[in-house]
């Protein structure tokens, strides 16, 4: 599904290199987790993959469903089925959530050659997804993320994932700022959305999330590189001894 090779990237404005050769392969049906300290490049990797303008790719490749990601505009990547749940979703005052979701939904449908949904059809389409996320329908009439709590913003991101029916979901710290109930709702929704045909890449600091969404692979990122790959056992090792124990393992 997604194959990243020797990916290097820098901050566009300052030229500071962040990613220094990342290698990662996600196949259909797999769930991957990336862990690492703050500043290790986890969030940069997710943003670079969806084409965030703050970063510039300086080397390597990323192939998504057989296509070169870096030759595609951000909206084309979304149409192809790639989705990023933002760590801190921005507020868009003046634009209602339902209009935003319908625009996004119809943009994807159009790119797939499907007919666009009118407002009524869209309500019918989105209601079950709201239920799945335990979200109040009044949510739709509010402005995009405006005045949302941290938990509401994260639920709204997953709602967008559900609406877009993306094949590959990158979840950047979807668990931060969530209480246990919200985390359970969000995790439940992600588990329902994933299938043998989809891929999930989670960026997180905490094991807590991984107890709800079980990863097949766990990667440790450090200074812009993936330094270690394993399974849940790696997470337990991390919980026990912190990142320093892994560094030693890596050095050996």
């Amino acid at each position: 599904m997604l194959e990243v090779k020797d990916l290097e990237a820098k901050i566009a404005s300052t030229g500071q290199p962040i990613l220094k050769g990342v290698n990662l392969t996600v196949r259909n049906g797999e769930v991957h987790a990336i862990m690492g300290k703050n500043g290790s490049g986890k969030s940069t990797l997710s943003k670079v993959l969806v084409g965030h303008p703050d970063y510039e790719v300086t080397g390597g490749t990323a192939v998504f469903k057989g296509k070169n990601l870096f030759e595609m505009e951000p909206e084309e990547r979304s149409h192809a089925g790639l989705f990023l749940s933002f760590q801190t979703p921005i507020e868009v005052p003046g634009v209602s959530n339902v209009d935003f979701l319908r625009m996004a939904c119809n943009a994807r449908r159009k790119s797939l050659g499907q007919s666009e949904l009118d407002p009524l059809e869209f309500y019918a389409y989105i209601m079950p997804k709201l239920e799945m996320l335990n979200m109040d329908p009044t949510f739709l009439n509010r402005n995009v993320n405006e005045g949302f709590s941290g938990g509401e913003k994260k639920r709204n991101e997953i709602l967008q994932l559900a609406v877009l029916e993306a094949d590959m979901a990158i979840l950047d710290e979807i668990d931060s700022g969530l209480d246990i109930d919200a985390l359970r709702d969000v995790a439940k929704a992600v588990n329902q959305l994933k299938s043998e045909e989809t891929g999930v890449l989670m960026v997180t600091h905490y094991k807590r999330l991984l107890d709800y969404i079980k990863p097949d692979f766990v990667h440790i990122m450090q200074s812009g590189e993936i330094v270690k790959t394993g399974d849940m056992g790696l997470v337990d090792q991390l919980e026990a001894g912190g990142y320093s124990t892994l560094e030693q393992t890596h050095d050996e």
Binding site: H52, S78, H79, V92, M103, A107, L164
Partner: peptide
């Protein structure tokens, strides 16, 4: 950042 948020959701610039 507003524009990018839309584009990341598949909405053209």
């Amino acid at each position: 950042d507003e524009l990018f948020y839309f584009r990341a959701r598949g909405i053209s610039a």
